[in-house]
Structure formats: C-alpha cells, structure tokens
C-alpha cells in the first residue's frame, strides 16, 4: 500500500502545475447561469426543484460530464505521452495495475469535486429563486452521487483508450463524437443504459426531472448496469495495459 500512496502523490504532483483545476468549475458555472435564468412563472411548491434540476442537469450531465470525463482521462496521461514518459514511469518499481488505479482514482476525485460544485450551483440557483429551504437535499445528493457513479465506467474506458492511443487529442475526439448522440440515445430504453456516454445523464435526471425513454428505468437496474460496465471496462483496460509493449 505505501507504494500505491506514493504513486498517487506522484500523479497528484504531475497535475498540480497543469492548471487542471481550471476545468473543474466550468460546467457548474454555466449550469448556474442556466439555473438562474429558469423561469418559474407557472409552477410553485415542490415542482420547482425537478424543473431546476432538469434545466441545469440536462446540460451538465448530458454533455459536459461525459466530455469532461474524457478530458480528465486524457489529461492524466499527458505527461507520459510526451518524450518517453511511459518508459520512465514503468521502469520504476511500480505495478502497472497500480498506475491505472492511481490515475483512475485521480479522475474520480476531480469528478467528485465537479459534482460537489454542481450541487452547490443548484443550491445557489434555488437561493436566487427563493426556495432554498424547500430544497430536497436527499434527492439532490442521490442525483449528484448517481451521476458521479455513472461517469466511472466511461472514465475506465477512456483511460484505457488514452493509454492505447499515444496522443492527447485523439481519444478526446472519439469521446466528443460519441457524446453528441446522447440526446437521441437517451430516448431508447434498450440501448441507453448500455451506452457509457449516456449513463451520467440517466443516473442524474430521474424520477420527476425527466420520465421518458431510458430515464424512466428503475435506479437499481441502472446501477447494476453501471457497475457491470465499470467492471468490464476496467478489466479490459487493465488487461490491455498490463500486456502492452511500451
């Protein structure tokens, strides 16, 4: 375990001067802007929270979260792609599994920070519209935590693709292109749960927020799918990376 902790701190150090944290508040800030502009003319009471969440979350979870996950996955491999970094890193006494695990953990932590800021943005928007005391914290917490979980399979997949393709932008290009059809895919309850790019949106916008297509599926089966795809993508990335010739 001490080896893993050192791996983590070296990953953290590599990121610390890269200004990656500048990416964290982008989406919550835009979501806040959208949330502040939502109009509640014809609704009142407990209907306001689902409307606010679906307005802010559609944009955040449908587009930004999957794209940001891909950006972060590419980002943690940035140092290694340039000038023989993989060789240097793997010539150290570290296990390849540990390297992947450390990078994945860093991605997960950064995504968690994004989600916390998003929750804060929802709170601020509800203060602006004057219904902060009625904000259902439990529902908000499960939406935020659920979409965080929904990002993890994609993070494992994109991390694998980023190690496979020794370029920073190429895996991102694929990721962005596959995020675009989200709006269409989410309508299909057969395909959407298995589509890693739609999972963050499906796990965030549930129940009262949106209830068509795959958004109406029960959360339990959705989480099982998310967990299953996480296991599959992570083991695929691990098997590939462990056998990769550097």
């Amino acid at each position: 375990m001490p080896g893993f902790r050192r791996l983590l701190s070296s990953e953290w150090m590599k990121l610390s001067k890269s200004r990656v944290w500048l990416l964290v508040p982008v989406s919550p800030a835009i979501a806040l802007l959208i949330g502040a502009l939502v109009s509640f003319d014809s609704v009142s009471g407990s209907d306001r929270y689902p409307i606010l969440l679906s307005a802010m979350g559609q944009f955040h979870a449908m587009f930004f979260l999957p794209i940001l996950t891909g950006i972060l996955a590419a980002f943690v491999c940035r140092y290694e792609h340039g000038s023989g970094g993989w060789k240097q890193l793997l010539s150290l006494p570290v296990s390849r599994t540990g390297v992947i695990a450390a990078k994945l953990l860093i991605i997960a932590v950064l995504l968690a920070a994004v989600q916390l800021l998003f929750a804060a943005a929802v709170y601020v928007a509800s203060v602006i519209h004057g219904f902060a005391p009625e904000l259902p914290w439990g529902a908000l917490a499960s939406a935020v935590a659920g979409s965080w979980l929904g990002c993890l399979p994609l993070a494992a997949l994109q991390l694998g693709v980023s190690t496979l393709w020794s370029s920073f932008a190429a895996p991102l290009a694929v990721n962005v292109m596959l995020t675009l059809p989200n709006m269409l895919v989410a309508n299909s309850e057969k395909i959407a749960p298995y589509y890693p790019w739609a999972q963050p949106a499906l796990t965030m916008l549930r129940g009262d927020a949106l209830d068509f297509g795959a958004f109406a599926l029960p959360i339990e089966s959705l989480l099982i799918t998310v967990l299953g795809s996480f296991v599959i993508f992570l083991s695929a990335s691990l098997v590939y990376f462990n056998r990769k010739e550097i």
Binding site: S18, V20, L22, L23, I30, I71
Partner: peptide, 16 residues
C-alpha cells in the same frame, strides 16, 4: 501547449 483548456473552451462554445 495545454490542450485541455482549449478543448474545454471549444466544447463550451459549441454547447453555448
């Protein structure tokens, strides 16, 4: 050099 910023800017432009 840092392309992550620029890609984020591009994505933000697109979505906005």
């Amino acid at each position: 050099r840092n392309q992550a910023m620029l890609i984020t800017i591009g994505v933000t432009i697109t979505i906005v």
